[in-house]
Amino acid sequence: MVSMAAQLLDELMGRHRNTLPNENSKEPSYHDPDVCKHYTSVFCPHDLFTNTKADLGVCGKVHDDMVREKYQKDASAVTREQFEDDFIRYARQILGEVDKRIVKGKQRLQTQFPEKGSNDREGCEEKVVLLTDKINHLIEEAEKEGCEGNIEQAQGLLKLCDQLKEERDQFRKQLDGTAQNYQGVDPFAQEKQMEICTVCGAFLIIGDAQSRLDDHLQGKMHVGYTRLRSAIDEILEKRESERKEKEVVREKEREEWKKKREDRGNDEEERKKRRVEMEEERSKRDRESVSKRDRSRSRERYDRHSRGYSGGHRSSYGSSRNDYGRYDRGSYRSRSDYDRRDRRSRSRDRRRY
């Protein structure tokens, strides 16, 4: 009662009715612990089953429309996911209790109203015939065992025959009783067949009037549980669609990254080709410069030697004439020595480059 009165006062005078005029009232937020997260994100399940058998009572937290609007505008994806997870967890807890009640109701119907095929007269007659055949077969086996001297086995078979006879007598009494009480009318047709609603767990009469079925479908319990199930399905479908959209975006990003990588690979190959071409051009220029330098050096040496011979070149071994008035052979071999040295230097330059 106190919580209901406080809720009414909050609706009439506002949440900050007890604050003084000079005090600054704090604006409510959807992160506050006294704010209902279920009402803020989807809806509060406490509002679905008021004045019914499944009444959850009054919600102990605040339902504020301003906070709900603020949540719809400003809440991040992580906050929305957390609030929705809390709602799904609580809704599944409520639906789990209903599912347990549905299972118990189905078991109750199976015990009270078993299937017609297992209890009708034709089924009983078939069982009587089968039991009679088994009894006759066991009696024949007992007689054979008695003739062979197996008295204990024969007695066991006869005891089994007695049990089967008792069971057959029970089925025959059922058939006789149904014939006497209903005088040819099927007794199972006299009882109303029931079924259980797979949404809210209520018992329904098969073949009932359409107006009563409509009243059931429009009732608070059926509508509330239907709304809970549909809300969970909607949240999960929305998350699945968002996940697929994100997967499509990621696939596009992967394709773009692959294309960029291929372009980079092509650029790298072109760079390698250019680098090879540049190295080949550089080596070619180096070879040309070396050959030019060799030719210039050989010309200079040849000119220097020719100028030395024409200008009276003297040998390093002494003058051109010796003491006996003859020319020294060293002066004549100096030119061939210079030619050999020139060839050796050119061969070294070629090896070097």
Results as ranks from 00 to 15, higher is better:
119 N>T: 14
253 E>G: 03
116 K>R: 15
253 E>A: 14
240 E>H: 11
233 D>L: 15
253 E>N: 07
180 Q>E: 06
158 L>I: 11
218 Q>D: 03
164 L>F: 03
197 C>V: 00
247 E>Y: 01
235 I>D: 03
197 C>S: 01
227 R>G: 04
218 Q>T: 06
131 L>S: 00
129 V>H: 12
224 G>L: 04
200 C>K: 00
141 E>V: 04
180 Q>H: 09
212 R>G: 04
193 Q>A: 15
251 E>N: 03
217 L>Y: 00
131 L>V: 08
144 K>T: 07
237 E>S: 15
238 K>C: 04
240 E>D: 10
155 Q>L: 12
127 K>T: 00
248 V>Q: 15
127 K>Q: 05
234 E>V: 13
188 F>V: 06
227 R>K: 15
198 T>L: 08
172 R>E: 09
243 R>K: 10
143 E>W: 05
202 A>D: 06
131 L>E: 00
126 E>H: 12
197 C>E: 04
124 C>D: 11
210 Q>D: 10
205 I>V: 15
141 E>H: 08
190 Q>K: 14
219 G>Y: 06
237 E>H: 13
204 L>D: 01
212 R>M: 01
139 I>L: 13
236 L>E: 15
171 F>P: 00
115 E>H: 14
177 G>P: 01
226 T>G: 14
235 I>W: 02
230 S>W: 13
207 G>Q: 08
253 E>P: 01
201 G>N: 03
250 R>W: 06
148 E>H: 14
207 G>F: 10
175 L>Y: 09
250 R>Q: 09
168 R>K: 08
235 I>T: 01
207 G>R: 03
201 G>A: 10
233 D>A: 15
203 F>Q: 03
239 R>P: 01
252 K>T: 04
131 L>A: 05
245 E>K: 14
200 C>P: 00
